[in-house]
C-alpha cells in the first residue's frame, strides 16, 4: 500500500505543573495517499494533539510517525519546519491570514519560507485561481468575506503541493451554506489533485462526507466507531 501516514503507538504526554497528562495513549493507524479522513472526538479526547502531531507542529513523546516516507519523531525544530513547509498544508478554523498582506501575498508565504525566489507570484495566483478567487487576488483579508478568506487559506495550504492538507474545523466559523462550499472545494481538490485530506471536526455532517472517520476517546482510537466508519463506505 502507498501510505502517506503511518502512525505506530503514538504517545504524547504533557506536563502541566506536577501532573502528567496523557493526551495520546498509543495510537496506531495508517492513511492511504489520496484518502479523505476525518478525526472526531469530544474535547479532551486528544483531537488537537493528534492534529498537531500529524501536522508536524509537535513531536510525539514516543512511537513512530512516518509522513510521506520521512520519520518525524527525531527531527529538530528546523527540520520539522521544513517538513511542514513541504508536506503539510494547514487550514484553520479562524483562517489565520495576515491582515497586512493581500490575498496573493498570504498565499505566497509558504513559498517564501521554501526559499523560492522566482515565480512565487505566478504559483500563488494559480492556487488562488484553483479556489475560484481569480478576481480577488489583491484584496486584503478584511476586504473579503469569511468564505473568501477561507478560500485564500485553502489556496495557501495547497500552494506548495503538500502531501496532506490538515483542516482544523474548516467550516467552524462559516455559515452552513458557505461551509458546504468550502467542504466541496476541499473534496474537489482531493479529487482533482489527489491530495490527502485530513479534517478535524466534531460536526457529524462533515464527517459523513469523508471516506473514513478516526474517532478518538481518552487519547485512544474508539474501535467501534472506526469499524462503523469503514463499513459505511
Amino acid at each position: 500500500m502507498d501510505w502517506v501516514i503511518e502512525a505506530r503507538s503514538l504517545v504524547k504526554t504533557y506536563k502541566m505543573g506536577e501532573i502528567e497528562v496523557n493526551a495520546l495513549r498509543g495510537v496506531s493507524f495508517t492513511i492511504e495517499r489520496g484518502e479523505v479522513i476525518s478525526i472526531m472526538g469530544p474535547s479532551g479526547s486528544g483531537k488537537s494533539t493528534m492534529m498537531n502531531t500529524l501536522g508536524c507542529l509537535d513531536r510525539p513523546t514516543s512511537g513512530e510517525y512516518i509522513l510521506d516516507g520521512e520519520s518525524v519523531g527525531d527531527m529538530d525544530d528546523d527540520q520539522l519546519a521544513s517538513v511542514r513547509n513541504r508536506k503539510v498544508g494547514f487550514v484553520f478554523q479562524s483562517f489565520n491570514l495576515l491582515s497586512r498582506l493581500t490575498a496573493v501575498g498570504n498565499v505566497e508565504l509558504p513559498l517564501r519560507y521554501a526559499g523560492m525566489t522566482e515565480g512565487r507570484r505566478a504559483r500563488a495566483q494559480a492556487a488562488l485561481e484553483a479556489v475560484g478567487l481569480k478576481d480577488r487576488m489583491n484584496h486584503r483579508p478584511y476586504e473579503l468575506s469569511g468564505g473568501q478568506q477561507q478560500r485564500v487559506a485553502v489556496a495557501r495550504s495547497l500552494v506548495n503541493n503538500p502531501a496532506i492538507i490538515m483542516a482544523d474545523e474548516p467550516t467552524g466559523n462559516l455559515d452552513s451554506k458557505v461551509g458546504r462550499e468550502i467542504m466541496n472545494l476541499l473534496l474537489n481538490l482531493n479529487k482533482d489533485r489527489g491530495t490527502t485530506l485530513i479534517i478535524v471536526t466534531h460536526d457529524p455532517k462533515i464527517a459523513e462526507q469523508t471516506q473514513r472517520v478516526i474517532r478518538l476517546r481518552d487519547g485512544e482510537i474508539d474501535p467501534d466507531y472506526e469499524i462503523t466508519g469503514i463499513i459505511k463506505r
Binding site: 501536522g55 528546523d78 519546519a81 511542514r84 513547509n85 513541504r86 495576515l98 508565504l109 509558504p110
Partner: peptide, 16 residues
C-alpha cells in the same frame, strides 16, 4: 504570537 505561530506552521524556521 499568533502570527508567529502561523508563520512557523507554514514552514518558517527559527532564523526566519
Amino acid at each position: 504570537t499568533r502570527e508567529i505561530g502561523l508563520r512557523k506552521a507554514l514552514g518558517a524556521r527559527k532564523r526566519d
